[in-house]
């Protein structure tokens, strides 16, 4: 095969609209995985941050364990754990065959991973609030809950929006790791297409374009939101 043939093949793939549709569907799956994992991460992040900022030593310890364990090991390993080890363990323990959906376990694994990073983002957003705000709330006799709800968290939220958006963008890219367990998201659709045509140039480059478009659109929206938030204070 010479270089002309190589690019000719590429044009052949590019001229078939079905191929774009396949990649687009893959991109939608990637986006869904990233979105659900991100939301899950925010919920886990709020829980993790309240553990890590808790007065109770044991709860703080739990929060630390979660964050260190997740951040200290590769995300791919965590995905493989949930896909290869957890179902087997459950099957052995319960005695009933436990089957998993690749997308479901994959999303859970990424969500749990993201939660550890979100924990740190939210925690630093909260402790970044000026001590004077806590003191003013205290001297006004606000309860701990009212202080968090009306004074601290709204201010922390604003600080946390930009890093949370980059977390979302990271997750869109990291969702490609699910291709390793055979979940047909954007990257794996491209790989399958490449294998069918014996030519990876167009599918992989086009997948890259899809990732770029998604991340670009999200960061543009985020910039607008940040500007709106900045105006209100």
């Amino acid at each position: 095969m010479d270089i002309q043939e190589y690019f000719g093949k590429c044009l052949e793939i590019a001229s078939n609209p079905e191929n774009y549709k396949t990649l687009l569907i893959g991109a939608v799956y990637s986006l869904i995985v990233a979105s659900i994992a991100w939301l899950m991460g925010i919920v886990l992040g709020i829980i993790g941050a309240s553990l890590k900022l808790n007065k109770n030593k044991f709860l703080r310890f739990l929060g630390n364990c979660y964050v260190e364990l997740i951040r200290g090991t590769p995300m791919l390993l965590q995905i493989l754990f949930f896909y290869l080890i957890m179902p087997t363990l459950i099957t052995l323990i319960t005695g009933n065959a436990f089957r998993v959906n690749k997308f479901v376990v994959g999303t859970i694994a990424i969500g749990i991973n993201s939660g550890a990073y979100s924990t740190e983002l939210i925690r630093s957003g909260i402790i970044g609030i000026d001590a004077g705000q806590w003191e003013a709330s205290m001297s006004l006799n606000l309860s701990h809950w009212d202080m968090m709800r009306y004074v601290i968290l709204p201010q922390a939220f604003k600080q946390v929006v930009p890093p949370m958006v980059s977390e979302y963008i990271t997750l869109i890219k990291d969702s490609s790791l699910l291709s390793t367990i055979g979940a047909v998201e954007l990257l794996y659709s491209a790989q399958i297409m490449g294998a069918n045509y014996y030519n990876y140039l167009f599918p992989l480059m086009m997948a890259g374009v899809f990732y770029l478009v998604m991340t670009f659109v999200i960061s543009s929206i985020a910039k607008k939101v940040e500007r709106r938030l900045a105006e209100s204070d």
Partner: peptide
């Protein structure tokens, strides 16, 4: 306080009425 410690994300009225309403 020396540095006032008003709540920056609320207008003056909301700063005033938050604690009396809640506590």
């Amino acid at each position: 306080f020396q540095h006032f410690n008003l709540f920056p994300h609320m207008n003056v009225m909301d700063n005033m009425i938050l604690a009396p309403m809640k506590t």
